[in-house]
Design a protein around this nucleic acid. Structure first.
Lengths: 343, 343
DNA sequence: CACTCCTTGGAGAGCGCTCTCCCGTACGAT
DNA sequence: ATCGTACGGGAGAGCGCTCTCCAAGGAGTG
């Protein structure tokens, strides 16, 4: 009794500075804490009149539920980590990444969940991600990376934390991906449709599986001997690759580039060399990013449904969060051809 | 006693599935919960030997502190809301926005804080932001918006929540901004330096203060009668504006464009009209975004130190979080001229 | 009328942590 | 020897919420 007194006094003091709690609402409404909680969460049957009284008390006290206290008992934070790595620190400038985020955010917000942005560009950062999740800072993780050798997915899988990967390379986690090979095939078919016979291609880095698949698909249709130069997905590398292709094969009339940014660079080099696009050379890009629209002529490209893929990641993750035992699954998307003015 | 038993049994059961708590570590180390907490948080002097024992116990149990439980008592989450609005849903594709995020994230991670990404594109979303903060879901908010009439800043100020605005228009909150007028002046001086005499400009929307200041600065140096066409910061609007300028003033030899994306569009139109850049017409952009580097020739531009500005926002916010009473302040940055190949 | 069943609301333990008290002990000063 | 003082460590209240019991009362059944 003696020790309980100070606390009780504080509770009933209605200090203006103190934020109201369930307790306060309960006192004002003349019911118990549990009943207020039921009303707030809309659970079980609560008498109409009492519901109304509670609602008034909430209004009167200006009560807002404390998310953290709730999390402590429900063991859910309503937040997921959105982990990005690669692209050398400039991830947020990447138009492709922006579309993923956009899809993720769009889905999450409809499920009252928010993404916690995290970078995982070095080992320390990767450890941070894992420990943040283990500490209950987020309910799960969405991983977006281009590097196939990133060990973070495995770390999360081992720790048994819910996670979904974009373009996954591990079987231990759920992932979303696209039929890259088919994308390459679409590009090849389209160029052949346009009566181009002397094809070439600019691929992404050799160690990125998606990039290799695009090339494989393209070659399956266009021919295994189609010349190819590898870039690294940057505009400048697209320029260099195009210059090299022109050197070895000056008569080419159609080129498939593994992403839009490199295609933009290639386009510039072609035009600078005096060639017209699509007149002399037709160009097909990949991604359908904002870069495709920034090109003149606007770029024909293979569209990745990136926003939908982002949303799918989020959906898979929330499934895993809700049902911890769920086995890893995957969702594979179809590419599509977007015809603009470069072919 | 009767009722305490089941719980105590559970506590000592060392259920493999249960995550270890402070209590577990304390028992293993043979000390009290408080002592373990002290060791974990590095507070006060704890005997070397006991520290070591606790550390071993932590190792042995695989203990990870529960962030949520800690938050409940410290009233800090270690997360801040990063709220973006405007740009019609395509915010994440904006290269400018990417740089802000980059600066923010970079600063926050060094202070073990993470940004919670939130969109505030309608009133419901704005209410969500406020209630999320009031519920203790984040310690404060960073607002990035281009719209001067956004009412979210005021809502946060009224609610007394810590917040910092990018390019603020309210005196109620701290903000970071840049000397836009000076940026316009730099552009004008540079064009005059390059012996351009028939200048013109493409500004941003009339209702964006920053845009108007850039124009005002440019005109202060280049002359009040310099022709100007307003765009809306998109590439397409830059093309249209340039076309219009060429119609009314075909002999122009220098143009200042209020952002790089519009400049990119303008550049294309100039070249398509048969003019050379910088030979016939010199072009100065604004922002120093990735678009400036995507231009051919590469764009001379007025650099905004956006990353630093983002970091400054984060710093100001953490100050406000740490010291709730702090009055609003501002941090104003200097623009700089980045000379490339378009002038 | 006694009995069971169902609905409604209260009591209170519990989530895992921090942090304020408070109590020993050791040590230097008086 | 006594006192003051600092320091190391424990006890336990408390953060605000959820949720499982449990009790009371009303309706339904034989």
């Amino acid at each position: 009794m003696e020790s309980a007194l100070p606390y009780d006094r504080r509770m009933s003091a209605r200090t203006p500075g103190r934020t109201p709690t369930l307790e306060d609402v309960a006192r004002v409404a003349g019911v118990s804490r549990a009943t207020v909680s039921r009303v707030v969460n809309g659970i079980r049957n609560v008498d109409r009149d009492i519901q109304e009284a509670v609602r008034r008390a909430i209004e009167k006290t200006g009560y807002t539920p404390n998310r953290v206290a709730r999390s402590l008992v429900t063991r859910r934070t309503g937040a997921v980590a959105l982990v990005v790595s690669g692209a050398g620190g400039d991830v947020f400038g990447d138009p492709f990444f922006g579309r993923v985020v956009s899809g993720v955010v769009d889905y999450l917000r409809r499920h009252s969940t928010h993404p916690l942005l995290m970078l995982a560009d070095d080992d320390a950062a990767r450890d941070d991600v894992v420990s943040h999740l283990r500490q209950g800072g987020a309910d799960g993780a969405l991983l977006v990376t281009t590097h196939p050798d990133d060990r973070l997915p495995l770390m999360l899988a081992v720790a048994g934390l819910p996670a979904v990967v974009f373009a996954g390379t591990t079987q231990a986690l759920s992932y979303v991906d696209m039929k890259h090979k088919k994308g390459g095939e679409l590009a090849a078919w389209h160029l052949l449709d346009r009566d181009r016979a002397r094809l070439a291609s600019i691929s992404g880095p050799r160690d990125v599986p998606a990039s290799q698949e695009r090339l494989a698909g393209f070659r399956r249709i266009a021919g295994d001997d189609v010349p190819n130069v590898a870039g690294n997905f940057t505009l400048a590398s697209g320029e260099e690759a195009m210059a090299e292709l022109l050197r070895t094969r000056p008569d080419l009339d159609g080129v498939f580039v593994a992403n839009d940014l490199m295609a933009q660079g290639a386009l510039g080099v072609l035009q600078a060399s005096g060639r017209t696009v699509p007149g002399d050379v037709a160009v097909v890009g990949f991604d359908d990013s904002s870069a495709a629209l920034a090109c003149r002529p606007k770029l024909t490209t293979i569209r990745q449904p990136v926003e939908e893929m982002g949303a799918a990641m989020a959906e898979l993750l929330l499934d895993h969060v809700a049902q911890p035992g769920l086995p890893p699954t995957s969702r594979i998307f179809e590419p599509s051809l977007v015809i603009r003015d470069s072919t």
